[in-house]
């Protein structure tokens, strides 16, 4: 009764309906999936809120305060929060809120290259970005080629990693002099070895996969294999690592500013604000030191939360 039609092998996997709408949906959904990883983690969302707050106030700084960060009010130095100056003033009577949010600009949204020229993207962001580019390239080459090239590159980077970070920063900054661009260079030099190591270890794993063999049997060039085949599959850990590194960079900028090696005065720099304000803490006006300290702490914590949440959620996602 129920004899199947056995003349053709039942090969075809399933019935297929080509549908362009489906294809468009697929693309949208992929974007949404990426975002949903972020939103699935409460920790990541909390971190994101903190980070976006600072980015927001930095971008809209001129609209958020009537004072310029350099404007001095001789009559009201070292004051606590008041209606006029919501966070108070420093020893020269400059508005702390203005200095704080203009300070955030340098960190997160603009890089002053010279007196009159600035480019978008903060000092910390640029530092990490350049470190990421250099480190990723070195790591890919090292991991993919292996052998002597790998050995030499890695030993050199190991030697750099052996120098204490603060010491390395101090050496670079004293050698180059204090400026935003030099801070970027310092962050790059300090950050590169760690990123290169991370990318190398990811590459060592990925290069054994069969799709790399397939690319090699197609005769693809090493650059194609490294940047098109390997790199996209290493992006997850790299993104997480980069976020943590922006945190470190902000921390490092604070440290350099505190030691007088950051932005040249009188520009609003969180580190130098703390250094100046420190003298007045015991005289009853801790405000000038407190606000920038809190700013650095919250931004670093925010970035760490974001990175942790992303890492956890993307691991569960797999």
């Amino acid at each position: 009764m129920t004899q199947p039609d056995s003349s053709i092998p039942a090969d075809s996997p399933e019935i297929i309906v080509p549908d362009t709408d489906v294809i468009r949906f697929v693309r949208l959904r992929r974007l949404w999936e990426g975002l949903s990883v972020l939103f699935a983690s409460k920790i990541a969302v909390a971190g994101l809120v903190i980070v976006l707050f600072w980015v927001g106030v930095a971008i809209f700084a001129p609209l958020l305060t009537p004072f310029s960060p350099l404007e001095q009010d001789w009559k009201h130095p070292n004051e606590g929060p008041s209606e006029e100056h919501i966070l108070g003033t420093d020893e020269l009577g400059r508005d702390l809120w203005s200095r704080l949010i203009y300070g955030a600009r340098v960190v997160l949204v603009i890089l002053p290259v010279s007196q009159n020229l600035w480019i978008p993207g903060g000092t910390a962001i640029w530092g990490v970005f350049v470190a990421l580019t250099v480190g990723t390239t070195l790591g890919l080459i090292s991991g993919y080629y292996g052998g002597w090239l790998d050995e030499i590159t890695m030993r050199l980077l190991d030697a750099m990693m052996a120098i204490p970070v603060i010491l390395l920063f101090l050496i670079i900054m004293t050698a180059l002099g204090a400026s935003a661009v030099n801070v970027v260079i310092a962050i790059t030099i300090v950050g590169t070895p760690g990123i290169a190591r991370l990318v190398r270890s990811l590459t060592l794993d990925i290069r054994t996969r069969e799709y790399i063999r397939a690319a090699e049997t197609r005769g693809e060039s090493p650059w194609y294999i490294m940047f098109i085949e390997i790199l996209p599959n290493a992006r997850g850990p790299i993104i997480v690592d980069a976020m943590l590194r922006v945190g470190y960079a902000i921390f490092a900028m604070g440290t350099l500013g505190f030691l007088g090696l950051g932005m040249p005065p009188p520009s609003p720099d969180w580190g130098s604000m703390v250094a100046k304000g420190r003298e007045f803490i015991l005289q009853g006006s801790p405000w000038a030191a407190l606000w920038p300290s809190l700013a650095i702490a919250s931004l670093v914590v925010g970035l760490n939360l974001l990175a942790d949440g992303l890492r956890e959620e993307s691991m569960r996602y797999q």
Binding site: E210, Y211, R213, A214, T217, R218, E229, P232, N233, R235
Partner: peptide, 20 residues
């Protein structure tokens, strides 16, 4: 010559690049 010789691999989970 490369074009005339191609390969099919063993492990279905690693034969395709997951990113594309």
């Amino acid at each position: 010559l490369i074009q005339e010789m191609q390969m099919v691999f063993q492990n279905p989970d690693s034969t395709l690049n997951p990113s594309y």
